[in-house]
Amino acid sequence: MLAEKYPEEIKAIFAKYPVKRSAVMPLLYLAQRAQGYIQKDSMQEIAQMLELDVTEVAAVVGFYNMYHDEKAGKYRMQVCTDLPCALRGADEFLAQLCEQIGIKVGETTPDGLITIEEVKCLGGCNHAPLFQIQEGDQVAFHENMTVDKTMELVAALRKAQE
């Protein structure tokens, strides 16, 4: 499936490393791009490409925050509430945001568009409150945010959807 879908990307990835196994992380990102999250069939395909046991691939998926093995909203809104952001009101920001959007942390909007997640430091502490939106293997920063600005963004995303 990946092999048909991304022949060029895969070739480039393999060219990068002297040892096949190193390709597992970029390949997992491809799988996430393809299906939004990582399913067993892609783990199996990757395992075959790299001559690994599928369990070895799964073990990598399970380790990293940005690989997801379960379906969620199209956009994962990942709000940092770590110490530096919290000192600048991130906890309150997240709380109000949840209230406005009408879901709790970890939940997904009924239209399946947005999942709100609470994450650790994103390296934007000077721009708190902030979040990033993860979509498959893509990431977009949204910094110096307010609840209103965020709701406008959400509205825009909803529009784009229709």
Binding site: L52, D53, G62
Partner: peptide, 10 residues
Amino acid sequence: GQAVLGFYQR
């Protein structure tokens, strides 16, 4: 030589 067990999560 059969890596059929692994760790998951962290």
